[in-house]
């Protein structure tokens, strides 16, 4: 089967800002692909081009076999999209929102109503179905927006930062819904700023920066590249920091990081739990007092730091200026 999504050398400029700088993607049908990158890396721009909202300045892309520019209209009946900000109508009820989308997919009045009820039930919105969306919580809005993307049962689905801004409970609930969805064979392209989210939902992940893919692989492959787990040790006194560094250096599989203000040493390791025991024993032998010790999965920051030598969070500051 040909890939469901192909992008070749996509370029998009906004004045002097290069949003996409040669974005290449290939997503096999029936798989979940995660686009992982910090704020401003070009995720939304990519999704907007693939969902026909935006024309690329250069490069080409096909989705479900249709060119996103030349065949835009026919493509639209094959895709579902849920944007970074929930595109729902505040004054309409949940049911009315979905019925409207069904009618605009030309499903007919009866089928649109049926489909709306099915989806409301599936997304646990039945009790709120006939209330205006204005009174919905953030999580409910996102679920309704996601339901809107599914009205026509599209074979290819795009979700742009589906859980950004949700509290942990709402995020976990949405993850379950998405996991269930892709079990049914839908091709999904998902963007996120969270390694954990990509890890949990995506078969393959592309790390993006400055509008291009800088690393590609499964979650495990990417984590191996950044050294897997990390141990974080906070010392009781700044004087111990240098001793700790020396004692921990043999355990590190990559660059060891020291934060002098927090009196913390972060060590990338391969075997998390065993390394933590070794580290604590080693520090005790050096008479270093440890105030806090922890084991941590790699974050986007870690992946980023390893791949680019820059902190992903620094980039966020850069872009908000």
């Amino acid at each position: 089967m040909p890939p469901a999504i192909v992008a070749e050398g996509l370029v998009k400029k906004y004045g002097d800002v290069v949003a996409l700088d040669g974005m290449d993607l290939s997503v096999p049908a029936g798989t979940v692909f995660g686009l992982l990158g910090p704020n401003g890396s070009g995720k939304t721009t990519t999704v907007r081009i693939l969902t026909t909202l935006l024309k690329p300045d250069a490069g080409r892309a096909t989705v479900a076999g249709f060119d996103v520019v030349a065949d835009a209209h026919r493509l639209r009946s094959r895709i579902g999209a849920s944007g970074q900000y929930a595109a729902v109508d505040d004054h309409l009820t949940g049911a009315e929102n979905l019925e409207m989308v069904g009618r605009l997919y030309h499903l007919g009045t009866r089928r649109s109503k049926e489909r709306a009820r099915e989806l409301l039930e599936r997304f646990d919105l039945t009790t709120a179905a006939d209330r205006p969306v204005k009174g919905y919580s953030g999580g409910m809005r996102r679920r309704l927006d996601l339901a809107g993307a599914l009205v026509a049962g599209p074979p290819v689905l795009f979700l742009d930062e589906p859980t950004t801004g949700l509290d942990p409970r709402a995020r976990a609930a949405l993850w379950d819904v998405i996991a269930e969805l892709v079990a049914g064979g839908t091709t999904l392209l998902l963007t996120t700023q969270y390694m954990e989210e990509a890890d949990r939902l995506a078969h393959r992940i592309a790390v993006v920066d400055h509008g291009r893919v800088i690393a590609l692989g499964t979650a495990d492959e990417l984590k191996d590249q950044v050294g897997g787990d990390r141990i974080e040790l906070t010392m009781a006194s700044p004087a111990d920091l240098e001793t700790a560094r020396r004692a921990l250096a043999p355990l590190a599989v990559g660059d060891l990081r020291t934060d002098t203000t927090a009196m913390r040493v972060t060590v990338p390791v391969t075997n998390g739990a065993a390394s933590l025991t070794t580290a604590l024993t080693g520090l005790a032998a050096e008479h270093v007092t440890v105030r806090d010790a922890g084991l941590r999965r790699p974050t986007l920051d870690d992946v980023f730091l390893t791949l680019t030598g820059r902190e992903a969070t620094e980039k966020i500051k850069e872009h908000s200026r």
Partner: peptide
């Protein structure tokens, strides 16, 4: 401003 047009534009309408 609210982004509802993004929804409309991805529909075959």
């Amino acid at each position: 401003r609210k982004g509802i047009f993004d929804r409309f534009r991805t529909l075959p309408m």
